[in-house]
Each structure stands twice: as structure tokens, then as C-alpha cells.
Design a protein around this nucleic acid. Structure first.
Length: 193
DNA sequence: GCGGAGGTAAGCTATAGGGT
DNA sequence: ACCCTATAGCTTACCTCCGC
């Protein structure tokens, strides 16, 4: 992920306000966060805040929107386009889970407001389930996954797993282990073999 | 002088709390 | 239940400062 560094003074101020807003929203939630909290944390004034954002809600939407955009971009890269044997399939699905866990760990404040906290999380998770469901449907069509389980349901189950395991405050190797367990569970189920 | 960036002060709105 | 008042929070008009 390449993030453009702010160059002009205005861009730097915008970035300062965004960082402060993300931290405050993540800490207090949308409704309990006051614009005065954000500007205090950023060392700026309220009018400056309103010269960069139409409203508190607009600032929140900008942050959550950016999170969703990044998430959708990530999901679009995860479509498996060729058939794989069982071992390769588990590896590939584990790699997808890992990319989600790494993504969630990348910017904790943005993740908090975009993925875990209401009101932003509801729409994010619905979208994520839909995008993943679309991927699964295509993968079912090429015979990668069983097609008797509806793709939208698999999408929702995937999101549920990411939602719960993504809350674990673990390091890179912990995320890798979690991703592996998720992939095994999703691809092979609980049944004894 | 001009335009961008940011601040001060004040107005507006919603809400909570107290009195009748 | 209704009204009044105080307060908090959001927004805006207008100003200064600074670099070009």
C-alpha cells in the first residue's frame, strides 16, 4: 500500500485533522466524539476543521469511505482464477485470510471505526460479504468450491471469521496461524476424516 | 496587493434540568 | 405537560498573518 505524503501546508493540515479524527472516533465512537476533541488533539481550531470538512459526519464518512475503498481493492486482488488441488487451495485461502488480518492490523484507528465500530461497521461488513460472495460465486463456477452452499452465505461466514479473529491483538506469526486455522476450517470443515 | 491558511468571536440549534 | 433557562456542541462571518 503506497500512501502519498502530503506536500502543501494545506495537505499537511488535512492529514493532521484526519489522524486526530481517526484517533478520537476510534477511542470514543462517532456520537461521543466532539469536533472540539478533534481540533484539540490536532492543535488546530474549529474553523480550520470546517474549512477541510463539511461537518463532523463528513469527516467520519471520509475515513470510513477510505477504509471501504481499500478493503474493496484488496478483495478484488484475491480472486482465485485457476483450479488447485486441496493442499494448494488451503494455502491460497489461508493467504487470503492473512491479507485481511494484515490489512486490519495496518491502521488500527481506521480499522476500529471502519470495521468494528457502529455505525460504520454495518455497511462495511455487508459490502465485504457481498464482494467476497461474488468472488466465491466465480470460484464455484470454475469448480474450485462446492456449489451446493450459496456463495452469499460463504461470504458472510468468511466475514464472521475475519471479524472475530481480526480482534485478536496478535503479531505477524499469530495472524499467520489464525489465517491457517480459518482456511482449514473453511475448506475442510469440522468433520473427522 | 493577492491568495491561502488559520484564528477569534459570536450565532444557531439541540438538549437537559428545574420550576410551575 | 409545558415553559424557561443554561449549557454543550456545531457552524460561520470576519479578521490577521505570511509567503509570493
Amino acid at each position: 500500500m503506497t500512501t502519498l505524503l502530503p506536500r502543501t501546508k494545506g495537505e499537511q493540515t488535512h492529514a493532521r485533522l484526519r489522524r486526530a479524527a481517526a484517533a478520537e472516533f476510534a477511542c470514543r465512537g462517532f456520537h461521543s466524539t466532539k469536533v472540539s476533541d478533534i481540533v484539540k488533539a490536532s492543535g488546530l481550531s474549529q474553523p480550520t476543521f470546517y474549512s477541510y470538512f463539511e461537518s463532523k459526519e463528513a469527516a467520519y464518512e471520509e475515513l470510513v469511505g477510505e477504509f471501504r475503498q481499500r478493503l474493496e481493492a484488496l478483495i478484488s486482488t484475491l480472486l482465485i482464477k485457476t483450479s488447485l488441488d486441496t493442499g494448494q487451495l488451503v494455502d491460497s485461502v489461508a493467504d487470503s485470510f492473512l491479507k485481511f488480518f494484515d490489512f486490519l492490523a495496518q491502521d488500527p484507528d481506521l480499522t476500529q471505526i471502519g470495521f468494528f465500530q457502529p455505525p460504520g461497521c454495518t455497511l462495511t461488513k455487508a459490502g465485504m460479504a457481498r464482494w467476497i460472495g461474488n468472488n466465491i460465486a466465480k470460484e464455484q463456477q470454475i469448480g474450485l468450491f462446492r456449489s451446493d452452499v450459496p456463495a452469499p452465505m460463504i461470504g458472510k461466514a468468511f466475514v464472521g471469521m475475519v471479524d472475530q479473529l481480526g480482534r485478536d491483538a496478535v503479531d505477524a506469526s499469530g495472524r499467520q496461524a489464525n489465517a491457517r486455522w480459518c482456511a482449514l476450517l473453511l475448506c475442510e470443515g469440522l468433520r473427522l476424516r
